[in-house]
Simulated scan of single mutants.
Amino acid sequence: MVPDTGKTLCADTIRPVNLPEPVAVREDAAGRPLMVALGRRLPVAAIEDCWRVDDEWWRARALSRMYYDVILGSGRRVTVFKDLIDGKWYHQSY
């Protein structure tokens, strides 16, 4: 059971979690990530998985992303994606 903190929950104290964060990524000629800058530049040692998401095509701002689950040179596993509409890269935390 979680102890009661005694604080009242207000709308201004609620914030979204796991929002994508912009990240610098160097790509190869095919658009796959070669290096990810998370504090420091780290080479991509392996791409474990990749998948594309196209959703909400009926909205003014459709969603089109290419996700990559990568292992960095440090051994850390991260998920990055490229927004295929604006061409920017993001890091997705879980």
Score class of each variant (00 low, 15 high):
D4V: 12
T5I: 03
T5D: 10
T5H: 03
G6C: 07
G6E: 07
K7C: 06
T8E: 08
L9A: 10
L9N: 03
L9G: 00
C10K: 13
A11C: 03
D12R: 13
D12H: 14
T13H: 01
T13N: 04
I14G: 00
R15E: 12
P16L: 04
V17G: 01
L19I: 07
L19M: 13
L19N: 11
P20L: 00
E21G: 02
P22Y: 01
V23M: 04
V23A: 02
A24F: 02
A24H: 05
R26Q: 12
R26D: 08
R26H: 03
E27G: 05
E27Q: 15
E27K: 08
D28E: 09
A29P: 09
A30F: 11
G31A: 14
R32E: 13
R32A: 14
R32L: 08
P33I: 04
V36G: 06
V36H: 05
A37N: 10
A37D: 14
L38G: 08
L38E: 10
R41M: 11
R41H: 05
R41W: 07
R41V: 06
L42W: 06
L42V: 11
L42Y: 02
P43D: 14
V44L: 12
A46P: 01
A46R: 13
I47P: 05
E48L: 15
C50T: 08
R52S: 11
R52Y: 08
V53H: 06
D54S: 14
D55K: 14
D55C: 06
D55Y: 06
E56A: 12
W57E: 14
W58T: 07
W58R: 10
R59Q: 14
R59L: 15
R59I: 00
A60G: 09
R61W: 12
L63H: 10
L63Q: 08
S64R: 15
S64A: 15
S64L: 12
S64H: 15
R65V: 00
R65T: 00
M66Y: 04
M66L: 14
M66C: 06
Y67F: 15
Y67G: 03
Y68L: 02
Y68V: 00
I71C: 09
I71N: 01
I71Y: 00
G73A: 14
S74E: 06
G75Q: 11
R76I: 04
R76A: 11
R76E: 15
R77A: 05
R77H: 13
V78S: 02
T79V: 15
T79Y: 03
V80E: 02
V80C: 03
F81V: 01
K82D: 02
D83S: 02
I85D: 11
D86W: 07
G87A: 11
K88P: 00
K88W: 03
W89R: 10
Y90N: 03
H91Y: 15
Q92L: 15
S93Y: 06
Y94G: 11
Y94N: 13
